[in-house]
Design a binder for these strands. Structure first.
Length: 561
RNA sequence: GUGCCCGUAGCUCAGUUGGAUAGAGCAUGUGCCUUCUAAGCACAGGGUCGUAGGUUCGAGCCCUACCGGGCACACCA
């Protein structure tokens, strides 16, 4: 609808240039938007104001010329007015609103999807937790945001690859192995022989017990049987990694989050990608030696200081494998890559991009994209629940799902813009009332299903596509609902392209609010059969949109509550 | 000290990428069930958009400086 109007204005402008009523000859970057105030019409454009300077005319004068040339847009436009400093307000013919109801019923569960991705390959990397413990709340937020992003992109025509990257070697894994070994030997935190900065959590005991029992574990990407030999640190490492990966997998499955590919940091070394990347950076002349370390001149690409690549002890800093990893992503053909991470990793953004630019293999400057989420604080009984991983006392993702349910957890995690901090109020998430946004939205869906059941009982059914007497829908509340329904595909598109899943939850709140309002002021099933049919047609369109949006969030749309 | 993010109603947060009189929910106050789920709805009060400048027809949004909070700063990832 907005698109149609946009093109109409564009063409009108060209016509004005042809007949000489306007002469600047440019098409300014004007917008067609939905005014906040309904009195300002269904759509409005600022085109006349943007032309004022080049035309050397008052915006309202220009608006008059455009309006005169506009016509009625093939019956689309009922009325046009010029308002304020030079806005052109459009009031559309009501009949055009009703078309969206047919479109929704025709599209069903597909409505709102588009092909803007055009089958291109996008990769979303998210969670990427190292296998040193259970997933915590922060991983949960990342998992929810990443998963919804994937669903959004798939719905907009992208070929999506969901990837999980983790470090299975390195210093932290050594600490993990040593901690498990210590537990195997009966050493406890605080005892002599407990590894420095070891992992103290209770779960380490479980890993040790399983190892001593010679259990077999298989995670999504690996399978290991324990030898039970407490002296074999290498065997412990393999087992511990597989064990914790399995735990994380189970948590993710409980959260309905799945991956297409697991990528191991160790494979970058094994396959020589790290070494090749370093060589390439040296050959391109972007490195230098200083203080016994090898540096990359990242300042040439907007970093505030140069970064060490190879430490004086000969090992690489973590950003080197990161660059190698992203080069690999590029070579796999992903024209778009989105990395969802905690904001505490934000310093990698500039470095990775700088490293990729320095490789000079044609990677665009802003590639890859990053979605960074801020911290989550958990509130229970109005008090903050402290999270401390090393000390081993914290709320895990699993705890949270078990306590408040998957739907609520997912909704709360994507409800806010990712770059603002999130307060997760456990008590609120558990509440089954209007205060809880998840229930509010699900309840709207359940209510419509309930109406359908009542309709069936009364021998009425929702009309099929094109047969509904839609002209019966004249109430303000009905038109408001229809006008909001129209925007759904745009919400999906925008959310996907700017990577902001929270827009979906805001839209859901709006549509649910309008529905509850309508429901309270008017009955759907009334004596007049035609009116009932038209209203059934409308509320079921609402039901489709609610269900579709919830499905993009990975949340159930219950038929009863 | 340097870099990034945030600052909007008492609280939690939106704000359609620069548009018209800045919006929701909670909390407070007042109403609405013989009728499809009251697990709901309506009305009312509540604001120097952190502060000060700047850019322009027009700024919550863009630029600069400052204030306050968070995060990160080779030898953890």
């Amino acid at each position: 609808m907005r698109e149609t109007l946009y093109r109409l204005i564009e063409q009108t402008l060209l016509r004005c240039y042809e007949d000489g009523s306007l002469h600047s000859g440019i098409t300014p970057p004007f917008v067609v938007e939905v005014p906040g105030n309904p009195e300002h019409g269904d759509f409005a454009t600022n085109v006349a104001m943007l032309l004022a300077r080049d035309e050397k005319k008052a915006p309202r004068k220009i608006a008059e010329i455009i309006v005169a040339a506009l016509g009625n847009g093939a019956g689309l436009i009922q009325q046009v007015e010029i308002a304020g400093p030079g806005f052109i307000n459009f009031f559309l013919d009501p009949s055009c609103w009703y078309q969206v109801l047919d479109a929704i019923h025709r599209g069903g569960s597909q409505w709102g999807q588009s092909a803007s991705g055009d089958g291109r390959k996008v990769q979303v990397e998210f969670v990427s937790a190292n296998p040193t413990g259970p997933l915590h709340i922060g991983h949960g937020r990342g998992a929810a945001i990443g998963d919804v992003l994937c669903r959004l992109m798939a719905a907009t025509g992208w070929e999506v690859c969901r990837e999980f990257y983790y470090n299975d070697a390195g210093v932290q894994i050594n600490k993990l192995s040593l901690s498990v070994q210590a537990r195997c030997l009966g050493i406890e935190p605080g005892d002599a022989g407990w590894p420095q900065d070891g992992y103290q959590g209770e779960y380490i005991k479980d890993v040790a017990a399983a190892y001593l029992n010679r259990e077999s574990v298989s995670a999504g990407d690996q399978a290991v049987t324990a030898t039970g030999d407490a002296q074999d640190l290498e065997a412990i490492r393999h087992f511990a990694v597989a064990f914790l990966r399995r735990e994380q997998d189970q948590d993710l499955r409980a959260f309905d989050v799945h991956f297409d590919n697991y990528f191991l940091e160790s494979s970058l070394y094994r396959d020589g990608l790290v070494e090749a990347t370093v060589q390439s950076l040296i050959e391109n002349g972007h490195t230098y030696e200083q203080d016994g370390a090898l540096w990359l001149r990242t300042t040439a690409y907007g970093d505030d200081k140069d970064r060490v690549m190879r430490k004086s002890d000969g090992s690489y800093t973590y950003f080197v494998p990161d660059v190698a990893y992203h080069l690999n992503k590029w070579q796999r053909g992903f024209v778009r890559v989105v990395n969802e991470q905690g904001a505490d990793h934000h310093s990698t953004v500039t470095r990775v991009r700088a490293g990729l630019q320095a490789l000079a293999v044609g990677i665009p400057e802003g590639w890859p994209e990053y979605v960074l989420h801020q911290m989550v604080t958990v509130l229970r009984g109005g008090e903050e629940v402290k999270i401390s991983k090393r000390a081993g006392s914290y709320v895990t993702l699993r705890d949270l799902i078990d306590e408040v349910g998957r739907d609520a957890v997912r909704y709360f995690f994507v409800m806010r813009k990712s770059d603002s901090q999130l307060v997760f109020d456990i008590d609120l998430a558990k509440q089954q009332s209007v205060d809880n946004p998840v229930f509010y939205v699900q309840y709207a869906h359940a209510r419509i299903c309930s109406i359908n059941r009542n309709a069936t009982e009364a021998g009425m059914i929702c009309p099929t596509v094109g047969t509904a007497p839609v002209a019966k829908l004249q109430l303000t509340e009905e038109l408001a609902l229809i006008k909001l329904l129209i925007h759904y595909p745009e919400v999906v598109n925008t959310s996907a392209s700017v990577c902001e899943p929270h827009r979906l939850t805001i839209y859901l709140q709006e549509i649910a609010a309008l529905f509850h309002n309508y429901y309270n002021s008017h009955r759907v099933l009334v004596d007049d059969a035609e009116t009932s049919a038209a209203r059934l047609y409308l509320v079921n369109a609402v039901r489709h949109v609610l269900a579709n949006a919830l499905s993009l969030l990975g949340i159930n749309a219950p038929e009863r509550m």
